[in-house]
Amino acid sequence: MATKTKATNILGLPVEEAVMIAAELNILLSNFQVYYQNLRGLHWNIRGKRFFQLHVKFEELYNDAQLKIDMVAERVLTLGGTPLHTFEDYIANNKLKVGKDISKDTEAVGLIMDSLADLLKIERVILEESDRINDEGTNSMMSDFIKEQEKTMWMMKAWSEEEI
């Protein structure tokens, strides 16, 4: 009796699982778009004695988020999916707190730390699923994102514990 083999895509990944990972990546894409927009708002609205330090840091973070957004969208395409691209989709899939009119430094850093923690949860699910089907492209991307974001969280935590 012959065993039935699963259909694979051009990458050699099982089609059904690749479609599921692309859907998870679209959730990540949506949340990164909200994170990006939060960072833009923080960059524009930050006030106080740490303005110069944080204004530059927030710009660095939103530029990095913009690159990651593009990488995630391209991975969705690589897996055979279609990247989400409307605000309606982003809001429907968002799991992050939306920051509005935040100008206080500690509140801004807190929002970033909370957002990164939520992004890490999504990325770890994708990492586990991509590992299960040997999707090294997605797996490697998630590992890189996780490593960078954990370091950013450590730095934000160190900043937030600073003595004045």
Rank of each mutant, 00 (worst) to 15 (best):
M1H: 12
M1L: 13
A2P: 11
K6D: 14
A7K: 12
I10G: 10
G12T: 05
L13D: 00
P14S: 12
P14Q: 09
P14C: 03
V15A: 14
E17S: 12
E17H: 10
A18T: 08
A18Q: 06
M20V: 09
M20F: 03
A22R: 10
A22Q: 07
A23N: 13
E24A: 03
E24W: 01
E24L: 15
L25H: 04
L25V: 01
N26L: 00
N26V: 00
I27Y: 05
L28P: 05
L28N: 02
L29V: 02
F32Y: 12
Q33S: 12
Y35M: 05
Y36G: 09
Q37P: 12
N38M: 04
N38S: 08
L39Y: 06
L42I: 07
H43L: 04
H43I: 03
H43W: 02
W44N: 04
W44R: 01
N45P: 01
R47G: 11
K49H: 09
R50F: 13
F51A: 02
F52T: 09
F52Q: 07
F52D: 10
Q53Y: 15
L54Q: 03
L54T: 03
K57C: 08
K57I: 13
E60D: 14
N63A: 08
D64L: 11
A65W: 04
A65E: 06
Q66P: 06
Q66L: 15
L67Q: 03
K68R: 04
I69W: 00
D70I: 08
A73F: 03
E74V: 09
E74F: 04
E74W: 12
V76I: 06
L77K: 00
L79Q: 03
L79E: 05
T82P: 12
L84N: 07
H85E: 05
F87A: 10
E88C: 14
D89K: 09
I91V: 13
A92E: 11
N94H: 09
K95V: 05
L96D: 00
G99W: 00
D101G: 07
I102R: 12
S103D: 11
D105V: 15
V109A: 03
V109N: 01
V109C: 11
G110R: 05
L111W: 06
L111Y: 00
I112D: 01
I112M: 07
D114S: 06
D114M: 07
D114L: 08
L116P: 05
L120F: 10
I122E: 01
I122P: 01
I122K: 00
V125A: 14
I126H: 07
L127P: 00
L127H: 02
E129P: 08
S130Q: 09
S130W: 13
R132V: 14
E136M: 06
E136H: 04
E136K: 11
S140V: 11
M141A: 11
M141L: 15
K147V: 14
E148A: 15
K151E: 11
M153T: 06
M155R: 06
M156L: 10
M156R: 09
M156I: 11
A158P: 05
W159R: 11
E162M: 15
E163C: 15
E163N: 13
